[in-house]
Every structure is written in structure tokens, then in C-alpha cells.
Simulated scan of single mutants.
Amino acid sequence: MRFGNKVVVVTGAGSGIGRATARAFAAEGARVVAADISEAVHATVEGLEGAIAVEMDAGEERDVEALVALACGRFGGLDVFHANAGISGGAAGILDSTVELWAEVLRINLIGPALAIKHAGPRIVERGGGAILCTASVAGLRSGAGGPAYSASKAGVINLVQTAAQQLSTSNVRVNAICPGLIETGMTARAFEYAREVGKEDKLGRLNPLRRAGAPEEIARVALFLASDEASYVNGQAWVVDGGLSSSHPVTRQEFGKPAF
């Protein structure tokens, strides 16, 4: 029960990594506030003692501020905030992406975590310290694992946690990022469903040394470690959980003027 009597907020908790992480925190004793823009978040907390669900927009400052206030008001404080909410932005290339697409992806994927740090950080300090965890991606490490807007936003998340760790120096609040590889989540569901329909499920994740995709629970286990006292000397880092994909990032090169696939 690593999180007994701890208060934990998880955004993007309506499915995938967020749902698995919220449930894992609850299983280890945490009082969980699961948040998502989708009403599916209510299913996440079904059967979880002491957990509550909140519908909100993780890229909207008023919503993030209210979420932190709710957690502190309901449970008396805040110990861990997992800024997990994100969107893919689709498959548009850098020449085809609109300004509106870039703005929305950055709003959710990068400004969202920044708002989480801004509003959760001081409340975690009040508890004597704790952890902030932001979901980045292997796409933020180098090219080849996502679209341009998505990749840039996740690279920003990695730098954000490094900068935040420095600016929260002496506060006893650790800030880290987790970089998943290919995981079956709500964001990637369409690709997984299509692969199953055409009998090519075995091709998913074939570029990493483990030759398979990952499960949300595998990311959740690492997330709990980074948020726990077991990781008390881990700060400002980007932990990669991708089956080894980023050890080489093998990709099919896209030629200028030609489709990627």
C-alpha cells in the first residue's frame, strides 16, 4: 500500500493509460480523483473505494485550478498529480497541418501539463512534498513515432519536467515524465481495431525488440514507481517504456512530396 492516505489526481483517466493508472493508485491505497473530458471517466472509478470522477478539460486553466481545489477540498490536500491527458492530432504531415491543429494539440498536450504543475505544485508543497508525473512519449525523443504536432508537444513535455524540477528545487516536489511506446489506448484504438480486422495484429509493435505492443497496465506500473517514495532520488527525468523501440527508432523514411504509407 505505497499510497495509503495519499491523494492522487489523474487526468485523461477515461481510458487507456489514465484509467489503468488511476485504478493502480487506488489499489495501493490512494484516494483518487480521476478526471477526463469524457463521461467515460465515471466507469473508471466504479468499484474503487474513495475514488471520485470529474469531467473537465485538461487544457483549460479554470478547469485545472478547479480540479486541484476539488481534490484538496474533498480529501484535505494533494500528494501526486499525473498529467496524462493528451490527443494525437491525427496523421497530418508538417506541410498539411493547420494552425488550428497545432494550437489544439499544444493546448492539451503541453499547456495542460504546465497548468498541472502550476496549480498542483504549491498544494503538494503544502503536504511536505510529493510527485508530479507528466505523460510524454517516445515521439518526443526523436522523429519516427508520431505526427509533427504531437511529437513537438511531447518533446516540450520532456523539457517542461526538466525545467520544472529545477524551478521547484528544495520544495521536495519531484517532477518526471514517462515516455510510452505503442500502447493500446483510446488514442490508438482505431489502429488496433483495423489491424485485427485485416488479420495483422501480430504486426503491431514489430519494430521494437520485444516485437509487441504494450498494455496500459505496463505503463501504470512505472508511473506508480515514479510517483512513489521508491523513486525518491529520481527527478527531472524522462523514463522510456517502449519495449526497446527508442534504442534505434527504426522507421520507413518518408520522401518529400510522397505519402508516408
Results as ranks from 00 to 15, higher is better:
1 M>A: 14
5 N>F: 06
6 K>G: 10
9 V>R: 07
11 T>H: 03
12 G>L: 00
13 A>S: 04
14 G>F: 11
14 G>S: 02
18 G>V: 08
18 G>L: 03
20 A>Q: 08
27 A>P: 04
36 D>R: 00
36 D>S: 01
40 A>V: 12
42 H>I: 13
43 A>D: 15
43 A>I: 07
46 E>G: 12
49 E>L: 07
50 G>E: 03
51 A>H: 04
51 A>G: 02
53 A>N: 01
56 M>K: 12
56 M>F: 08
56 M>Y: 03
56 M>R: 12
60 E>F: 11
61 E>D: 14
63 D>W: 13
64 V>G: 03
65 E>S: 14
65 E>G: 15
65 E>T: 14
65 E>D: 11
66 A>F: 10
72 C>D: 13
73 G>D: 15
73 G>M: 04
78 L>I: 05
78 L>N: 09
81 F>W: 08
81 F>D: 07
84 N>V: 06
86 G>R: 02
86 G>T: 05
87 I>A: 01
87 I>E: 04
88 S>I: 12
88 S>Y: 10
89 G>E: 01
91 A>M: 15
93 G>C: 07
95 L>N: 10
96 D>K: 00
99 V>H: 13
100 E>H: 00
105 V>I: 09
106 L>W: 02
107 R>G: 00
110 L>W: 01
110 L>R: 00
114 A>T: 14
115 L>P: 02
116 A>G: 15
117 I>P: 01
120 A>T: 06
122 P>G: 07
122 P>E: 01
122 P>H: 05
123 R>D: 14
125 V>C: 11
125 V>G: 05
125 V>K: 15
126 E>I: 12
127 R>M: 08
128 G>W: 10
131 A>H: 06
133 L>S: 08
134 C>R: 08
135 T>R: 04
135 T>Q: 00
139 A>R: 09
140 G>Y: 05
142 R>A: 14
142 R>G: 12
146 G>S: 06
146 G>H: 13
148 P>E: 01
148 P>R: 09
151 S>I: 05
153 S>G: 13
154 K>W: 00
155 A>H: 03
158 I>Q: 04
164 A>C: 05
169 S>E: 13
173 V>T: 09
174 R>L: 12
174 R>K: 09
175 V>Q: 04
179 C>L: 09
179 C>Y: 10
180 P>D: 03
184 E>W: 13
187 M>W: 10
189 A>H: 06
189 A>I: 03
193 E>D: 14
195 A>C: 05
195 A>I: 04
195 A>T: 08
197 E>K: 14
198 V>A: 11
200 K>Q: 14
202 D>W: 10
206 R>E: 13
209 P>H: 03
213 A>L: 12
219 I>T: 07
223 A>C: 11
223 A>R: 03
224 L>Q: 05
225 F>C: 07
225 F>N: 10
226 L>D: 06
231 A>M: 03
235 N>P: 11
237 Q>A: 15
241 V>P: 15
241 V>F: 11
244 G>S: 09
246 S>D: 01
246 S>Q: 04
247 S>P: 07
249 H>K: 08
256 F>L: 15
256 F>C: 06
257 G>K: 01
258 K>P: 09
258 K>F: 14
259 P>D: 06
260 A>P: 11
